[in-house]
Amino acid sequence: MIAALIYVVSFVVLVQFFVYYCRSVLASSRKVELSARVREAAGVGDSVAADDFQRFLQLVRLCPENSADRAGIRAVGTYYSLLHVLARLSRAMLPSVAAWAEKEQQGCSHFAAVALDRRISFSRDLFVQQASSRL
């Protein structure tokens, strides 16, 4: 009985901590403006949509890996999937929760776009380094 109670409480607390952690990671990228090259590469306008996340993620995967952002991208990817399920489940019954989930998904898309921007810069630096070492 006690073990079951501990399991349920731990699971609820784990989900809460995970959501807060992902939101703290997203908060770090929220103020970052997207560059024109990212908008051009992904074909997006002034603001990113909730559905753009997968597209940004695919583009991120095309760039050379930067170990510094790998863990953050994975955590946010898991958070995005959870939000996707939540938005689907609550659309009919709880539209306010679905709207909140969609807004959060938009934050995830912005995070992925910022990560893509960083990776493009990283790739360019790598290319410049290789070109200068060949000369």
């Binding site: 073990a3 079951a4 501990i6 399991y7 731990s10 784990l14 901590f17 995970f18 703290s24």
Partner: peptide, 24 residues
Amino acid sequence: LVQVVLALGIYYSATAGAYALQDL
């Protein structure tokens, strides 16, 4: 500090849950 505490919270709750499951 926020990230250090949140990471610790995930660690503690995940491990407590795993031990509780093992006890169940």
